[in-house]
Structure formats: C-alpha cells, structure tokens
Design a protein around this nucleic acid. Structure first.
Lengths: 353, 353
DNA sequence: TTGTATGCGTTATCAA
DNA sequence: TTGATAACGCATACAA
C-alpha cells in the first residue's frame, strides 16, 4: 500500500541508503541527487514508517506524562503545558491517568506501555516514602512533586512549604486569625498536603500564634466536592474561621460554594485562598485569591530535563532537583476591592515570592 | 540489555515461535511447555518489544484524540472519558492539541505522527464545509461534532439543535422573554455555534416571538474570558436581557462573573444557562444550569466505533452517524431554589430530552 | 503441538 | 558522495 524507501530509491535511481540520508538531513549529498530523491518522495507521497525507525533506533519520540486525572483542572492545564513544551522539542506526549491508585502508578513504571515511550514525567499520588526502590528504573524519568525522593532521579517541584507559608502570612497580614485549612492528610509529611500544612504551621508560629487543631479539615482527594464537604464538616462542627486556606484551587472553589450556600459573605466574614492558580479561579464569584506555583515553568523544565536524559542516554549525570518560582495572586476572595474594578486579570494584585 | 524472545527461548529450551505463542495466548501448547516458558519469562524479566511487534503487525495499539485544547474543561473531561473507554478496549490514547488552528488540524490528518497510531478521533474546529475531501483518509477515523460531514466517515455528535431549542424553551417557560445568546459565530451554519443558534431561533419561533438581533453576542473562541467580554459588550451597548443562553459552559461562567461584577442578581434579574455540563458548573456561584450533551456516551461510542474500524480494517461498512442523548440540568443560575438546599447534585433538577 | 525460515522498513557499518 | 548488506525483534507461513 504505502510507499517505502525502496520504492523511492527505485524511482529516483539511487540506493535506499541515499534516500535515508536525504530523509534524515545528512549533509554530504550532491544537490542534484537530493533533488531527485525529494521529487520521488513527493511523487510517491512517501512518509517514513515510524515503527521501523523505532525498531532500528530504539527510540520512539514519545514521552509519557502520568497524572492522577485530567478532569482536575490543574492537571489538565499541566498536560497542556507539557504537550506544548514537548512539541517544541519535537516530542509527542502520551498521557496516562493513574486515578491516584497505587496499582496504576506501578503499572506506569513497569507496564508494557513503557516500551512505547522514551521517558516518563511522573506525578505520583499514591507512591511515597518506602517506595524509593521502585524508582530505580532504567529509563529516563523526571518526577513532579515531593512525595518521593531518590538520589538518582530528577525532580521538578514547587516551593510547597515556602509558598504555603507566604499564603498564610498574607492572610495574617489581612488581620485574620482563625485560619482554617482544608485538604489536610493527617499524618502525611512528604506530600503536598503535608508540606503545605507545614508552611501554614510555620507562618502561624512566626506570628506567635497557636494552631487550633479543630480548624484543620481533612479531605483525601482534592476535588471541588471534597473541598465543599470538608468545609461543611468544619462548619457543622461549630468551627467559625475568619479565613480558609484550601490546599488547592479545586477545593477552594468547593469551599466558596459551600460558604455561599450558607450565606457567608466572602471576603468580609471569611477570606479564602487557594493554591494552583488554575484559570477557573479568575472567573469564580468572587474570583479566587491563590498561589501560583509556576506551572508553566515546571512543565517546561521537566520536558527539557527529560529530553536531555533521553538524548544523553548513557551518560549518568547527577540527579537534579529544580524548584519553580511562586507568587501570590490576590483577587476578590480575600480583598473585596481586588475584584471590583472590572474584568479579572486587570485589577489582580501579584505578590512575588 | 533487555531480554528478547530469543533469550527466553534459549533459557526455556524451546523455539522462539513457541515463546511467541505463549506470549500471544495461542491455545494449543502443552501445559508443561507453557510453564517452562513462563518461568523463563519471569526469570529474565522479559517484556515484548512493542516496536518490533508494531513493525511486524502494522498496528500500534494507539489511537489519537485531536482536540482544540485541554485547558478547556469540556475537552479535558472528554479526554478523560476517551482514555478510560480506550483502556477498556486495550488501547492507548495519544492527545493532539490543535488550538483550533487549521494548519494543525491538517497536520493531524496527514502528519508523520499519524503513523504512530491505528486511528483517530477528531474534534475539528477550523476545518469545515469545503474540506470534505480532506476527510478522504485511508485510516480509521471517527469525527466528533457536526462541522464536516463526509459519507465515508463515522460521526458521533450531539443533538445541538434540539438541545439548544430545549434550553431556550426552558428559559421561555420560566417567563423570560429577552434572551441573549453569547458565543455567536456570525454566518456560521454547520458548527456548534450555528446549530445551537438555530435551535434558539426555532424555540423563539415556536413561542411566536421575534428574535431581537441585538441580543446576539459574538465570541470567536469559547473561553471564560471571551464569554465575559461578550457579555460586557452587550451590556455596554445598552442591551438589557432577562436571560442569557451561553453556547458553552466556559463562556457561561465568564458571563456569570461579568454580571456579578456589575451587581446584577442571578437568577432574579438575569437567568443564565450554559451548555456542556462540565463539573465546574456545579460549584460555581450560583451553580450553573446547563445542557448535558452526553459526553460519556460520546466518548464511549466514538472509541468503540473506532476500535471496530481498526479491527475490521479491510471491510468497508457504511459510515454511521450517532447522536448522543441530552438533558437539561437545572441549577441555581436559573432557579434560585435549585441551589438553596445544600450541596450541588442533591437539589439539581434534571429534565431529560 | 512445535520448529525453521523469511521479511516487516529502517538505520548503521563499511567499503568503494 | 554513494551503495551493498547486515541487523533491530517479532510474527507467520509452512513444515515436521
């Protein structure tokens, strides 16, 4: 059916190797030869057979991106950024949804699909401390986040502790004192939940304030629904915060919703801040103050690091750890006037780390 | 480095063919032989080389999904559903972002990446009438939406006209008369914009009402920002609607935002309905009444149809056209009491088509 | 029920 | 600057 290099070679009256050279931009080819080959390619509508090339070179040009789920806006936007960054490097992205399930995360590391790809950008949720050995993989990998560290694997992460501390400090500066936290994972130390809570505690300590543990609301999965539920439980338990730090934007939006259903005025009675800076937050009502963790930068850095690893296959460099910059985006959920001036994006205040 | 079938065969003391048979589940193998082979596979930690298999079989087990962009929640959720449906069929999904650009959409149809995949689920935005010939492709494809029709290609679409008509009728039944539309593409006939506007016009005609053209707000890309802008333009032009039909949820959320920035009460002064039923809409404030176009069903159907085509390669069946069911999800942006009872999802009304 | 031999379409090695 | 030829790892006639 489709034309092969052979066909092109025959038509152009050259050897198959010459066709290959032309296709791959090998420089030492007589202009007339190249022209003849290109004409033949054009005429036969020839396209390289990627499968054959893959077999021969051992590379596929595909990288995998493993995230919990695309229906969470943060990961959808992350995937968007990763795909664009990969495009810039001539790479294609295969997205794996793990659902945050341990089994599926393990499959990503060792499953058959692994062989379809040259490398992996992995955002784990279930794997954690104790699983370091599983990261001893023999293919290029970059890990997103701080759940697991292993000396031989590259990491790209955000300043979770610092950013959460800044977010909390910001609320304190607004005069808020009873700051609830939504999305806590009790006992966790290494994940986003643990680190962000740590930042919160630090900021409270910095201000000389005691942490009221009844203000900490649990939520396993960080969805809109769980944020709303966690907020509801706190309120039902009689807790009366004057601010809420939701550990991600999805939950923050759920919190906004729950508070408003109950007639609580935001930000007058309760100020709300989220984490992630998803686009959705600039259009909520009120618009959502949040921490911008540098998603773009994270995606770009991860892809570039991975591409380097893929290219330099053999060479075992030292593993690197990169932290993206963060900033606080002030909007209506913490300062009424920040949203009053018109369209979002215009009146927003940005406080850089 | 990695073990091959050869290695396994040698270790198990059988031929390479036998190993292949075991791996591919060929039934006529003596139990003892199979056991020996499996043991060898285990010992060598053998995994098939997908590239080689692809080359040999001409199949990759990958299907492509081409959408405008993942950061639009509808497409992120669609991708989520498609990936899950594909998993169920043992297929992997490669996502292409076209950005709605004609050039990139063409690339999806003919680019080199095409050869990485067995088929394509394509949601075009730029391609349209006049491009039918481009759909004369020689690989399995399923098209989402109604922008282009071609007799030889499968389509999975939603009841755009009918659903839009039902949405408008619903607003009319609420007693609204000056219903603005946001997201209009002037002159368009075949795309979602054209079809949904058509449904609107039909409903107005059904009710014996004249359409006030000044109520139609344009918006090229259907983002939150463009929805807000379109609404702002209408209001700035002095238009005073008592309801807004935003042609998708993203714009509806922008509309909600813009109205609230201007102090308009929803739904008392202006009722708002969207289209898509993205998760985000159940947590906005007020929660968003919308049309559920049957995303799950669309994804599942598309994957199944594509899988059939891929399997039945040669056999040229008749092209099919499938319409998903729709329903109207009533929430707070049109009926104040729909959102008042507590958590979203509980008090929602659902009107089925 | 199992083995042998051939080729899928490329790229890489080497020689010319 | 170009050509002949050998892999890459697997699946599949065909034979046994």
């Amino acid at each position: 059916m489709a034309a092969t290099m052979h066909d092109v070679a025959k038509l152009a009256g050259v050897s198959i190797k010459t066709v290959s050279n032309v296709v791959n931009g090998y420089p030492y080819i007589r202009e007339s030869t190249r022209a003849r080959v290109l004409a033949a390619i054009e005429e036969l509508d020839y396209q390289v057979n990627v499968a054959a090339r893959n077999l021969r070179t051992g590379r596929t040009g595909i990288i995998a991106l493993a995230v919990p789920e695309l229906s969470l806006p943060y990961f959808a936007e992350l995937a968007d950024s990763v795909i664009q960054a990969a495009d810039a490097q001539g790479l294609t992205v295969l997205i794996e949804q793990t659902g945050g399930q341990r089994e599926r995360e393990l499959e990503v590391l060792s499953g058959a699909r692994r062989h379809l790809t040259d490398g992996l950008i992995f955002s784990p949720l279930a794997l954690g401390p104790g699983d370091e050995d599983l990261l001893e993989v023999d293919f290029p990998m970059v890990i997103l986040g701080e759940r697991i560290f292993h000396s031989s694997v590259d990491h790209v992460t955000m300043h979770n502790v610092e950013a959460a501390r800044a977010a909390t400090r910001y609320l304190l500066e607004l005069g808020r004192r009873r700051i609830a936290v939504v999305g806590v994972h009790p006992g966790e130390v290494v994940g986003s939940a643990g680190l962000r809570l740590k930042g919160y505690r630090q900021a409270m300590a910095d201000a000389g304030l005691e942490v009221d543990e009844s203000l900490l609301g649990e939520a396993g999965l960080w969805h809109r629904a769980t944020g709303a539920q966690s907020m509801a439980r706190l309120l039902d338990a009689g807790v009366r915060p004057d601010a809420v730090f939701a550990l991600n934007d999805a939950m923050a939006l759920g919190v906004l919703h729950e508070l408003q259903v109950r007639g609580v005025r935001i930000p007058e009675e309760v100020a709300v801040i989220g984490f992630d800076a998803v686009d959705e937050g600039s259009y909520s009502n009120p618009s959502l103050t949040t921490v911008d963790p540098g998603r773009e930068q994270i995606a770009r850095t991860a892809v570039e690091m991975l591409a380097e690893r893929v290219a330099g296959k053999g060479a075992p460099h030292e593993a690197r750890r990169v932290y993206a910059d963060f900033s606080i985006v002030v909007r209506g959920s913490t300062q009424a006037d920040a949203a009053a001036h018109g369209r979002p994006g215009l009146a927003e205040g940005v406080r850089t780390a």
